[in-house]
Simulated scan of single mutants.
Amino acid sequence: MGLRNLLGVALAFALVASGPTPAQASAPVTPPGTPQVAGTQFLSAATVDLAWMPAATGTNPIAAYEVYARRPGWNYPDQLLTTTTSAWVFVPIGGLRPATTYQLYVRARDTSGLPGPASAPVTIATLPSDIVPGPPVATDATATTATVSWRPPAVAIERIAGYDLIVPPATPTQPIQIRTSTGPSTTSAQLTGLRPGTTYTFIVVARYTDGTPRSAPSARGTVTTAPSVPPSPPSDLTVTTLTPTSATLSWTASAPGDFPISRYYTYVNGGALGVPNPGPDVRTVTFAVSPGSTYEVYVRAVDQAGIYSAPSETFTFTAPGQ
């Protein structure tokens, strides 16, 4: 082979050897894991509360959980009932038909839109609408009280043993709280001890004398109390007595808002002072200090409805040395 041919072969080999490297195969994308249904509560004519364990995260973060329903024996697509970011809390599921059997399941979907496997289905049978009371409705609400009423179920009154007004638990580990109970002919309740400017969620459960079914819960209802004027901030904060090891703090009383002052809370360097909180007629506290240390203190008032004032102005002082 001549020199010219040898140079041509070498050049061709060099071009092949220096060509682009084949692309590496991308890593497979893992979808979210399978949620596990943790339980149901308060099955009604058209609603049920459903809770599930969080799914394991795949390649991408979980964006949402989707709750689906299928009706056994029906050749229709499964129905998407709700989409939520919640997990391990009871999620109210609506859009169901009375006296109907459903299989509910949950699947996670990640931020790329990739769905994970469906959970094992849970079977429910909604109640007939005639045995379910109406949701509680606020007929009168103040800052700390509210009257709620509900529509009785369309059954003979002799079948009703009474009603329970219930605060639904948020998670499967929380207990059910019965706020009040009434007799069979009472379909309203007066609530006291509420916090101003707060929304409460309730359901009504009808208790039946025949026990079949044992009870029938209403859909959820909410009650929002009226806002309240808070106390004014304490004023004229000062240290009246100061030694290397103790300081006595005093202030001028707050002006009450809508409710009388209950007590004062004192704070030092951003945390609680660590002394008993004085009542409304005591406006001084004594607490331990360290020689040469600097302290920032302030005070807040709280009224009998549990509403706090804004903080007083911060007072700064340094304990004298020994």
Rank of each mutant, 00 (worst) to 15 (best):
T171D: 10
T171K: 11
P172M: 10
T173K: 07
T173F: 13
T173S: 12
Q174L: 14
Q174I: 01
Q174G: 09
P175R: 06
P175M: 04
I176W: 06
I176P: 00
I176K: 06
I176M: 02
I176D: 12
I176Q: 15
I176V: 15
Q177W: 09
Q177A: 09
R179I: 05
T180A: 15
S181D: 00
T182S: 14
G183V: 05
G183D: 12
G183L: 03
G183R: 02
P184A: 11
P184F: 03
S185K: 09
S185C: 04
S185Y: 09
S185Q: 13
S188H: 14
S188V: 00
S188T: 09
S188E: 12
A189N: 08
A189T: 03
Q190R: 12
L191E: 11
L191S: 07
T192Q: 12
T192W: 01
T192M: 03
G193Q: 07
G193Y: 10
G193W: 08
L194F: 02
L194R: 06
R195Q: 14
R195A: 14
P196A: 07
T198D: 01
T198S: 09
T198Y: 11
T198N: 08
T198H: 11
T198I: 04
T199C: 01
T199R: 13
T201K: 05
T201E: 12
F202E: 13
F202A: 04
F202W: 11
F202P: 10
I203S: 03
I203Y: 03
V204Y: 02
V204R: 03
V205I: 00
A206C: 13
A206D: 01
R207Q: 15
Y208H: 03
T209V: 14
T209N: 14
T209K: 10
D210C: 03
G211V: 02
G211L: 11
T212E: 11
T212L: 14
T212Q: 15
T212S: 14
T212A: 14
P213Y: 02
P213S: 08
P213H: 07
P213D: 08
R214K: 13
R214H: 02
A216Q: 09
A216E: 08
P217Q: 04
P217D: 07
S218F: 00
A219F: 01
A219R: 13
A219S: 11
A219Y: 00
A219T: 14
A219N: 15
R220K: 12
R220L: 14
R220E: 13
G221M: 07
T222Y: 04
V223G: 02
T224G: 06
T224D: 07
T224E: 09
T225H: 07
T225E: 08
T225Q: 04
A226E: 12
A226I: 07
P227M: 00
P227C: 06
S228C: 05
S228R: 02
V229T: 15
V229M: 04
V229I: 15
P230Q: 10
P230C: 04
P230L: 06
P231D: 10
P231F: 05
P231R: 04
S232A: 15
P233H: 05
P233D: 06
P234R: 01
S235D: 10
S235G: 04
D236M: 06
L237G: 12
T238Y: 05
T238S: 11
V239L: 12
V239Q: 07
V239M: 09
V239I: 15
V239E: 04
